[in-house]
């Protein structure tokens, strides 16, 4: 059994997946296994993946959405730790090494790191102007910045396949209510691409999913009587 599996969920990721996979294969502390879960892509993703045939494992499945796709990857992993990356993002070469060192040193179950948002170069100037990138260096409480012990999923459960937007927020809320120990490495170790088709933030119906997740989160926290009130 190796140390870390990287799970890459992909749906129509032909534009950026090469860059993504190369960044995972170029880690200074090698990833034991790379599992790409192809969620029924209709573009050339599968063909592109052939060039990595000897270095990655590909699981093909019908299109069912992000949470179910992640879960297929988690079930196929057999290492002590699991990391994730979306098919349009990249890791810095020292991400795995830095985070694994932090995990071992601090004896924690889950580790996050800083994320830098960047505008994908193919966007036109007009499109770039419409994005208010704001602060680009952020605390990466997100899948792509996480390394987590695989057995945490046995305690917390898998991603909720019913959740279409905010899959990670929903899972993280459950992880917090289960008191999963975690640590944040304050270094930018991954890059998150902002492009035309991952901009969901002002679409109201997606945001309503967030409200629903936050309401469930509050109910859980109220039950635990944890006072998270910031005011």
């Amino acid at each position: 059994m190796g140390e870390v599996t990287c799970i890459i969920p992909v749906y129509n990721g032909e534009k950026y997946i090469v860059e993504c996979i190369e960044s995972v294969l170029n880690q200074t502390r090698a990833i034991s296994k790379v599992i790409v879960v192809n969620d029924g892509s209709e573009d050339n993703t599968l063909k592109i993946l052939e060039q990595f045939a000897e270095k990655i494992e590909v699981i093909n499945k019908p299109h069912t959405g992000i949470s179910d796709t992640l879960n297929v990857g988690i079930k196929a992993a057999d290492t002590e730790y699991i990391a994730f990356i979306d098919a349009d993002d990249t890791w810095d070469p020292v991400k795995t090494a830095t985070q694994m060192e932090a995990i071992k040193k601090n004896h924690i179950e889950m580790c996050f790191c800083g994320v830098k948002n960047f505008l994908s170069p193919e966007m036109t100037e007009q499109q770039k102007k419409m994005v208010h990138l704001g602060q680009t260096e952020l605390k990466g409480y997100s899948k792509i910045a996480m390394i987590v012990r695989r057995d945490v999923f046995e305690r917390v459960g898998l991603f909720d396949a019913k959740v279409l937007t905010g899959d990670f927020i929903e899972w993280y809320s459950r992880a917090m209510s289960e008191d999963v120990t975690h640590y944040f490495v304050d270094e930018i170790l991954c890059r998150r691409r902002i492009h035309l088709t991952n901009m969901t933030r002002s679409v109201e119906y997606d945001l309503k999913d967030y409200a629903s997740i936050l309401r469930d989160h509050l109910s859980r926290m109220r039950k635990k009587s944890i006072n998270t009130n910031s005011e």
Partner: peptide, 23 residues
């Protein structure tokens, strides 16, 4: 509540064209 701030602020805000949606 501010305990989910880091997660909620990860996505940048963008304008939406009223006629076509995102550009």
């Amino acid at each position: 509540y501010s305990d989910m701030q880091d997660l909620l602020l990860l996505d940048p805000i963008h304008d939406v064209d009223e006629k076509t949606g995102w550009p």
